[in-house]
Design a protein around this nucleic acid. Structure first.
Lengths: 131, 131
DNA sequence: GTGATTGCAAAATCTTTGCAGGGAC
DNA sequence: GTCCCTGCAAAGATTTTGCAATCAC
């Protein structure tokens, strides 16, 4: 994959936007440092990144726009319907628990490759270092 | 909520479409039995149903359109990126496992209300009664 | 030089909205 | 009768696409 100026800027912006931005939000961030980058390019670049496995699309139940997640390490999501916030949640113990569960319980015909737990709840304030 | 002809038809269609249809697919199904129902009405009715808790929106990572799930009982999703299929997966043991986990581990500031596990994998063929 | 990538703008999708008329209660 | 709901069509929002020019390699 070619390292064009635009793509580098977009990747930079993704790391700045540590939440789960929409394509539009990524574009706004990119334009702040490089006003010539077009929204179409952002869409194309994000597609490329997803195809390359650099980022993932987040499954947002509500809200119209798709969102992207710059962080590809396995993690889970806390979702607050009130604020539309999506917060990363990491917990190795939880991962192990689920992984062990599927190790013993075969899903016939389905080969699990990964999983992500979406936890819905209210008033997210992860004021400890949980994130 | 008023039980209009259109809404009844839409609910019927949702139960026929046991997978996770888009608004467009619901509309096609409804029109098959009642050609006068408009797409706009389908959107409005689906919104009402979601607000009333009768159905939920499914978090589809890929694909442009939102999808709806007529089944509100707690369940998980098997997702195959190749076929874009979303398959319901139910497992009380898994539910208990996760519920117990969060019972002991408090997320500070976040009050979990529900959860859903999204399992990504390949070639789903749940040829047993797992579904 | 070659082929992937960009910018632009138009098109295609998907969803929401406004409003007058109609139906459920 | 009242107020919510419908149909329609237009608007809005989001995403994709085509193509000539440009850039990374």
């Amino acid at each position: 994959m070619r390292a064009t100026r635009q793509r580098v800027r977009i990747l930079e912006s993704l790391s700045v936007l540590c939440d789960h931005p929409t394509a539009e939000q990524v574009h706004r961030q990119v334009v702040a440092t490089d006003p010539t980058v077009s929204l179409g390019t952002v869409y194309k670049a994000l597609d490329s990144f997803v195809a390359a496995g650099l980022i993932t699309r987040v499954a947002a139940a509500d809200g119209a726009a798709r969102r992207y997640d710059a962080d590809c390490s396995a993690h889970h999501h806390l979702y607050c319907p009130d604020t539309q916030e999506i917060i990363d949640y990491r917990d190795p113990q939880l991962d192990a628990l689920i992984r062990d569960f599927f190790a013993t319980r075969q899903l016939s015909g389905f080969q699990p490759q990964g999983f992500s737990l979406h936890i819905t709840g209210t008033r997210p304030r992860l004021d400890d270092g949980q994130k």
